[in-house]
Design a protein around this nucleic acid. Structure first.
Lengths: 244, 244
DNA sequence: CGGAGTCTTGAAATATGTCAACTCCCGTGG
DNA sequence: CCACGGGAGTTGACATATTTCAAGACTCCG
């Protein structure tokens, strides 16, 4: 982990400005945040926080990908969240987390010391309000994932995962479908996210490649060739779903 | 559904007073809530809210048990939450939910019209704060359940479920272990909660009965005879866990 | 007493996990 | 520049936990 004191991007120019915890903030409020923030970076594979750690800071993920994971005594692991740019780490009023946070790619965090930040919340309703919104969104996502983990088949899980990647990629404002996407995780990590084994992930991905739903250029870079088929494979509502 | 205008229990005498959304409220604040609230009751099996419904009210569950469930097109269903007394239904700033809420037993709700309630939140920090706490708790529970759904075996799932029942029963302030508990759900409902089939639930429950971990008096009433063994069977940390 | 909902139990089917070998990259260091 | 080594992915054969299908038993309630 590195503390980067130099490249302090101005909040107003921040790439995640409109989606992060500071989304609703006015110019003045940004100025306050500006004072408090500092960047930290982590290399791919670095742990960011361990389960049970005392939280000394909270942060927005600016760049890169991180995972929230739980591990059982015997080594079985399950991811319980995927952090992409603009996602938030930490909870108001909680000093501990009960999962591990790990950097999957190189990661840049926009950090705030927890205590000052919590003080800030009291005086900045825009932040508090956004924090609640984000917590409720996370809850919805978690519940959607419960359905996936409990009831979907391997194929449906993979399809849903890819489908979600497409959605989130577009949130950023990118074009619709048919563009190059990137798998942000190894197949083993995908397996841990979906409650599968890496072999099953490989086979299902292979199948969808063979069926012409997906097309890989590189081992990581791919494209959704047949979006309707992908949607169909998710097992979610049968309507074509935000189709062309 | 019935609107019960008569039996308006005073907040100060409410059985869930100390754990519900009003937990942190002072006497004055309770008076305000008192004005707004009304009771509704539902019979076992009644739907309380459907996915996509517009939320006209929010509520605390006073009595009984309800479930949050998602259903796929082809009928597969997954419960994503279990509501016991003191749990809250509804979200600040959200007018819709994307799961069904169903009364499993007869249920009594302490309801507030959504609009007035949201207005209230702004002026009653104690309620807003408690609401955030409760949302974060739900999130933790949801993530714990993701681990269960994704990685635990049938036996571990059942054990974890029973274990959770014991915990929650004690939260109310009851004595430790070795007392009569009640299965609040049918085995089919348990199956839907755990991502299993009812047959598997029956078999695993039967096994734990045969092994002398559980003992049933009635089809619904039972007792945990061997708590350490139960804890062991959950697959969670190996220490004996809040043992006698 | 009948009947429906709930639970139990068995046998067979199957999706996914497990184990194991092999390939393909890609970066490192000789 | 090549050889090496390790991580990642692929693929096959086999094992197995859980589901599926099916029949029957129990229990509560009208």
């Amino acid at each position: 982990m590195t503390i980067d004191l130099l490249s302090r991007t101005k909040c107003s120019e921040c790439p995640i400005r409109h989606r992060a915890v500071c989304a609703h903030c006015s110019g003045d409020e940004l100025d306050v945040l500006e004072q408090l923030k500092s960047y930290k970076t982590f290399k791919a594979g670095d742990p960011i926080l361990w389960r049970g750690d005392t939280l000394t800071f909270v942060a927005s993920l600016v760049q890169g990908v991180a995972t929230l994971g739980k591990t059982m005594e015997d080594g079985r692991t399950q991811m319980v969240g995927l952090l992409l740019p603009s996602d938030f780490i930490g909870r108001p009023g909680r000093s501990q987390i009960d999962f591990d946070v790990v950097a999957v790619t190189d990661v840049t965090l926009c950090c705030f010391q927890r205590k000052p930040f919590e003080a800030l919340i009291a005086s900045t309703p825009h932040v508090a309000q956004r924090l609640v919104e984000m917590a409720l969104d996370e809850l919805d996502v978690a519940r959607e994932w419960m359905l996936l983990l409990g009831r979907k088949t391997a194929r449906e899980k993979i399809a849903t995962f890819i489908h979600m990647l497409v959605q989130r990629q577009h949130l950023g404002g990118a074009e619709i479908a048919q563009q190059a996407l990137v798998l942000p995780l190894t197949q083993e990590q995908i397996a841990n996210y979906l409650g599968l084994t890496l072999e099953t992930v490989s086979r299902q991905l292979g199948a969808m490649k063979k069926e012409g739903i997906l097309q890989f250029s590189d081992r990581r870079r791919f494209e959704v060739v047949d979006f309707p088929a992908l949607h169909l494979a998710t097992g979610d509502d049968s309507d074509g779903g935000m189709l062309v």
